[in-house]
Write a protein that binds this DNA or RNA. Structure first.
Lengths: 161, 161
DNA sequence: CTATAATCGGATAAAAATGTCCTCTAAAGA
DNA sequence: TCTTTAGAGGACATTTTTATCCGATTATAG
């Protein structure tokens, strides 16, 4: 994977949040992680960082929880990654030959450049809203698959009779 | 960066090796890291792994050292990465929505697929020979830059006279 | 005001990655 | 054979990442 575990949690957490809570309504951590494999306590730390970075708003006490600081379609993966890891460092030479940059490129740098650029574009244009809808699509499939499995099980039981 | 520090050392180490030693002649670690920022002892460990993976051959004792197990143009970055990290895991969903794969893609998966493919192609087609020549190009530049700096310094001194 | 409910934030632990050192082993040359 | 020289490999140290826990803080409801 191209992200760290922490960054991945941030991305998944925001995607869940956008998918589960309606706009301008906050959701509690316990509700957000329910049914996911997201680690509650660790995600809490990650969300604290996202609050400080201005991607999330939080509220303590009863009725508290987290909500997006701006619309889901205005938060990109790039925003998330940079909130966690700091400025994206994709500009370094892909193969670790330092002192390579756009001013002083090496052949590898030029070859890798188009890939880097596409990655950057992807990160800069894909938003939390996109991710949330991807999540929903995935969840829908999951159900279909489970149903199919149940159906097969049923047929199998009948056949045995 | 998209590689771990360890993998990056492996890549840089092999590039240096291919650049410094003529074919079918081994080079010692101490010579290989001279003038680089590669950490000698840690690289030794990394090279041990590459020997076991079949990318390098090693020889103990006098006249010993390391050499490529096959021609530089037949060792790809992919080979190196897989020797260190195991099979490349780029196939996972880019945004960590698990249960996504080519059979069961989600929208993000499809969007990210072309980027992933290009990355894979790059890793599978770029060889140690390419990296070595990139290194040499870079080193040539480095010299030019240093010369320019020295020249300027000289002019500056003259001007002051 | 009090009890409850939520995040915040510090402390700490566990695990993984990275880095260092030292002895063992194998090979070559005197 | 003996000495020197190289990597091999084990032990250990350090740092970073990931994970967990708990009291403090803040807000709400009654």
């Amino acid at each position: 994977m191209i992200f760290t575990t922490t960054t991945e949690y941030a991305i998944r957490g925001l995607a869940e949040l956008a998918g589960r809570s309606s706009d301008s309504k906050s959701i509690m951590l316990d509700d957000l992680v329910a049914g996911t494999t997201l680690p509650r306590d660790f995600l809490a730390k990650v969300f604290q960082r996202l609050v400080k970075a201005g991607l999330l708003k939080s509220a303590k006490g009863r009725g508290g929880g987290f909500m997006l600081a701006r619309p889901a379609h205005e938060i990109t993966i790039k925003d998330i990654v940079e909130s966690i890891d700091g400025p994206i460092h994709l500009d370094r030479c892909a193969v670790g030959l330092d002192k390579c940059n756009d001013h002083q490129p090496c052949p590898q740098h030029d070859l890798y450049q188009p890939i880097r650029q596409r990655l950057k574009d992807y990160l800069a244009t894909t938003t939390v809203a996109d991710l949330a809808s991807s999540l929903k699509t995935k969840q829908a499939w999951q159900k279909i698959i489970e149903n199919n499995a149940a159906e097969k099980e049923k047929q199998h039981a009948n056949g045995k009779h």
